[in-house]
């Protein structure tokens, strides 16, 4: 994306009116993206009293950590963090093992059934049974109300698998051949030759899976009813989205609920859910451009 192409042609240009117009448009657009997020962060550090007194809160007038203290006192966010981390800890290795071994296996040439297996996999990209039969299967396997239902429901992302497979296919075949001549089996070749050469793509896919796992909510909402087990995203949903007060629908209960969960607490909940993604993002960005997109476009 940030390819440094020779810009000699444009550098000789004079600055035209159009440059200014485009600069203004793009800057406003960028501000429109930042402001809602910035606003959430500002409110989360603002005392409830200041928030209610200030009609337009553009910057933190007074800073407090009270909202975060209230949030953690509530306890649900801790439970959410625990579930999400557990899902990440069990799910991410599963994703990587399944995806890597399958991608490498299907990148090998000349084995009977290669095409058939790949077609079976591609078919899952355009046709799926949906959540209900998956739920029934989880129930049959006795996995509902455990984090394992969420862990197993998302095993291989076929799109990521194909990106990885394309990368493996692009490695020079002669390397694998010579490894084989030296007596290395497929597993040995994978671990000592292919993986060390595939670090960028492995990093990219790992980060993508990690973000996906972090953001998971739908499967958990269907498979896990026990509230103590629900992942962070669902806790956030319960705190912010499900406790919305709408003018025309506000009942006494809803108002009570709304008071209990002040804006400060809600925004603090958003921030603690968002921050880990913010921390991972710079690394993600470094990789996704050259790794994923190039792979996806070229193939």
């Amino acid at each position: 994306m940030t390819t440094e192409r020779p810009r000699a042609a444009t550098r000789r240009d004079r600055i035209e009116a159009i440059d200014i117009v485009l600069l203004v448009i793009i800057t406003v657009w960028a501000f429109l993206i930042i402001i809602p997020v910035y606003n959430v962060i500002v409110i989360s550090f603002t005392p409830q009293k200041t928030y209610l007194e200030t009609p337009v809160l553009l910057y933190p007038k007074a800073i407090t950590l009270q909202n975060y203290a209230d949030l953690f006192e509530d306890g649900r966010i801790f439970a959410g963090y625990r579930s999400t981390l557990l899902i990440l800890l069990c799910g991410l290795p599963l994703n990587l093992i399944l995806t890597t071994s399958f991608a490498y296996g299907s990148s090998r040439s000349h084995y009977p059934g290669r095409r058939l297996i790949f077609l079976l996999v591609l078919f899952t990209m355009i046709f799926n049974g949906g959540i209900i039969p998956l739920y029934l299967i989880m129930r049959q396997l006795d996995l509902t109300n455990t984090i394992w239902s969420v862990v197993f429901a998302y095993g291989i992302n076929t799109f990521y698998m194909i990106i990885m497979r394309n990368y493996f296919c692009s490695l020079p075949e002669s390397l694998m051949e010579s490894a084989k001549l030296d007596g290395a089996g497929e597993w040995r070749t994978l671990f000592s030759i292919v993986l060390p050469l595939s670090l960028p793509i492995m990093a990219t896919i790992t980060l993508f899976y990690a973000v996906d796992r972090w953001n998971e909510w739908y499967n958990a909402m269907i498979f896990i009813q026990r509230s103590g087990l629900q992942p962070l995203q669902l806790v956030l949903r319960a705190i912010v989205i499900e406790s919305q007060v709408l003018d025309s629908y506000a009942s006494a209960d809803a108002l009570l609920e709304a008071r209990k969960f002040s804006m400060g607490l809600k925004t603090a909940a958003v921030v603690v859910t968002m921050v880990p993604v913010m921390c991972v993002f710079p690394f993600l960005q470094k990789h996704f451009v050259k790794g994923v997109m190039v792979g996806a476009i070229k193939a």
Binding site: F102, G129, A153, G155
Partner: peptide, 18 residues
């Protein structure tokens, strides 16, 4: 054997629901 874990996953959790 490399393909097997993934295949099992696809069969149970993608083709099962189908």
């Amino acid at each position: 054997t490399l393909l097997l874990p993934g295949l099992i996953w696809y069969l149970v959790f993608a083709y099962g629901p189908m």
